[in-house]
Design a protein around this nucleic acid. Structure first.
Lengths: 188, 188
DNA sequence: TAAATGTTGTGAGGTAGATCACATCAATGG
DNA sequence: CCATTGATGTGATCTACCTCACAACATTTA
């Protein structure tokens, strides 16, 4: 279990056994069942979650009650409500499990402490955040310049495994299109 | 001029005079005329730009030749092609000036050096990147859950000065709607 | 200062995709 | 193992927004 997290970090910075043990003391392990919530809009959400096994989604519910999926997170991914996490305000997003899930979470306070104590880890988080930023920019461009079917095809290319594990209606919500429209094009 | 940059940094971390002088050695000042490009798709784009005075935009040109504006940047903002910058690959975005502009830019190599030399600065960039990430997430939600007019109203709230300085057609492009549609609603 | 170029408005018509409404079949839990 | 709930497909409308076309000014620039 711990090794999954270690491998994730060591993709970017190398750690001695001792350093990793130290890093680990800042995390907490947790298992969560399908359908359970990890973050609820309105509540504080002081943790960032690393997925060891399982699958979650984060989503926003608008004034009309429609939900919009911001992110899926499977093995090796991180998920949080970043605004609530970094600014210590209440969540505006929900996060729940699509499958039984094992994760490590780290509080924002522990993270800030860890970054000061071990600069490598600040570097690690920096790289992760930057990569996330770039991915979001790509998604914005995709929402603005591509039509539904192109976005879906791109999704299939990018996340073939999610196509298997996630109901189509949720993928539609992630892509910003209706269930029915996506259904009508699954041919290609 | 330098003070603008200093104030920007000191919103997040405090610097001694000496530290700031040191920070400055990693930046280069530059003035750019209206219509000039700062980054061109296809070329390397190893610099991140801090705007002291003026106004720029970053945009993507799709296969059909349509352009989509990702970002405006006026005084106190940063602008780059983040993917090209951080991953040292060629740009996919263009960045050009909407007004005569003064800026400080920092190469990715200088930035990485600076972050190691002065950890405060790594913290500073981390905060900036995180805030940017949160803003992009909000924009994605806005593209998915709001319709054209709501997005425009939100834009006015958020960036009243841009409404003055930027042609409506460009704002439309930023919002992912057509010039004509935006024109038809400027009533409200 | 005339010519070229950029900005904004507005009409008319077209369309991608939303919404509503069912139907079928699979999965899950008491 | 039956009953409820979830997943998916598909037809029939509806609509927000796009595209094309043109006009009227404003602003550069030669």
């Amino acid at each position: 279990m711990e090794e999954v997290l270690r491998r994730q970090i060591e993709k970017i910075v190398t750690l001695t056994d001792e350093e990793f043990r130290f890093v680990l003391t800042h995390f907490t392990a947790r298992t969560v069942k399908k359908h359970q919530y990890v973050v609820q809009a309105g509540d504080p959400a002081p943790n960032d979650h690393f997925v060891v096994k399982g699958l979650l989604k984060s989503f926003y519910t608008d004034d009309l009650g429609k939900t919009h999926i911001l992110q899926f997170a499977m093995e090796d991914w991180w998920i949080s409500d970043p605004q609530a996490y970094h600014n210590k305000v209440n969540a505006t997003l929900h996060i729940d499990c699509l499958e039984d899930t094992q994760l490590f979470f780290i509080s924002i306070d522990n993270r800030e402490k860890l970054c000061v104590e071990l600069q490598k880890m600040e570097y690690f988080f920096m790289k992760k955040t930057t990569a996330g930023y770039i991915a979001l920019q790509r998604r914005i461009l995709s929402l603005m310049s591509q039509k539904a079917e192109e976005r879906f095809n791109q999704f299939i290319q990018l996340y073939p495994t999610l196509l298997q594990r996630v109901p189509k209606a949720l993928i539609a919500s992630y892509l910003g299109i209706s269930r029915e429209t996506l259904s009508r094009m699954s041919a290609h």
